[in-house]
């Protein structure tokens, strides 16, 4: 039969182990950062072709839509921890909120809100594959449509900690 001090030692050991395990898990969760990539594209039927700055993105847009002109308006990158909202200022006075909510395997759950000024235009919860894209298109912007491409990935990226504009608004 164990003596009382030995029972106490066992309890301390188990408590210490559980606390350490919880601390490590908590650190793992807090270290999860999602890299958000935002590209704003103006699509129109003005026969100006695809902006070369779009690269592979332009090819993808031409496969999905039937516009004759795709111009990169704005490009931003940001990093967001799970459960924290990152805000992007979009062309035309629109504001985009992205909140990564969880990672399950290769799927990233996010909440995406699009505002026109202060008025909400779209609220959606979705799960998308790592390195996948969500395109929010329309409504009308300048002489065409504004297409917002939202990419999310869990890997290392060279993105700056805060949202930054890489291309000037047109």
């Amino acid at each position: 039969m164990l003596t009382r001090p030995r029972n106490l030692a066992l309890i301390i050991a188990v408590a210490f182990a559980l606390a350490a395990q919880g601390h490590v898990s908590a650190q793992t969760i807090h270290q999860q950062v999602i890299v958000i990539q935002i590209e704003s594209v103006m699509a129109a039927d003005t026969n100006e072709g695809v902006d070369p700055r779009l690269g592979a993105m332009g090819v993808r847009l031409r496969k999905i839509f039937n516009y004759s002109t795709y111009v990169l308006v704005n490009e931003q990158n940001g990093r967001a921890e799970i459960g924290k909202v990152i805000e992007f200022s979009m062309p035309g006075g629109r504001v985009l909120h992205v909140e990564p909510q969880s990672i399950n395997g290769n799927m990233i759950a996010m909440e995406v809100l699009l505002f026109q000024g202060e008025k909400p235009m779209l609220t959606t919860d979705l799960k998308m594959p790592n390195k996948g894209w969500l395109i929010v298109g329309g409504p009308h912007y300048q002489q065409g449509e504004l297409i917002i491409e939202i990419g999310a990935n869990t890997g290392d990226a060279t993105a700056s900690p805060t949202a930054a504009s890489a291309a000037p608004d047109k």
Binding site: R60, K63, I64, M121, L122, T124, L126, M128, P129, K131, G132, W133, L134, I135, V136, G137, G138, P139, H140
Partner: peptide
């Protein structure tokens, strides 16, 4: 609002019409 997937491109589209 139109929603569709482009699985080969790993893309989901939400279209907000005028």
């Amino acid at each position: 609002v139109a929603v569709w997937n482009e699985p080969k491109m790993g893309t989901t589209v939400i279209w907000l019409p005028d």
